[in-house]
């Protein structure tokens, strides 16, 4: 079995995805999890992805946004507040 990724490493990978697609695509938690699972295969599992999202939120690196449904975004001033 492949070496498991740490929760912090998964959080970093998720952050990079959110940062790369900022302003282009809104990632929901499930989308991020599916993308990480597809990229890293059996090095990750759903529970660790869930913990990684919590790490991202608690650290303030990402925030939840809402536009019809909830998504994960970089902190900042978004459209509705302008």
């Amino acid at each position: 079995m492949a070496d498991k990724m740490s929760v912090e490493a998964i959080a970093d990978a998720m952050f990079n995805i959110v940062k790369e697609y900022a302003g282009k695509k809104r990632y929901k938690s499930t989308d991020l999890t599916k993308e990480i699972l597809a990229t890293y295969g059996d090095k990750v599992d759903k529970a660790d992805c869930k913990a990684a999202i919590r790490t991202l939120m608690d650290s303030g690196r990402c925030v939840y946004g809402y536009a019809g449904g909830s998504f994960i975004a970089l902190p900042g001033i978004e459209g509705a507040a302008k």
Binding site: R54, M57, D58, G60, V63, Y64, G65, Y66, A67, G68, S70, A73, P75, G76, I77, E78, G79, A80, A81
Partner: peptide, 10 residues
Amino acid sequence: GGLVGVMGYG
């Protein structure tokens, strides 16, 4: 809508 909320909560 938007990004408004409290730390850690969605």
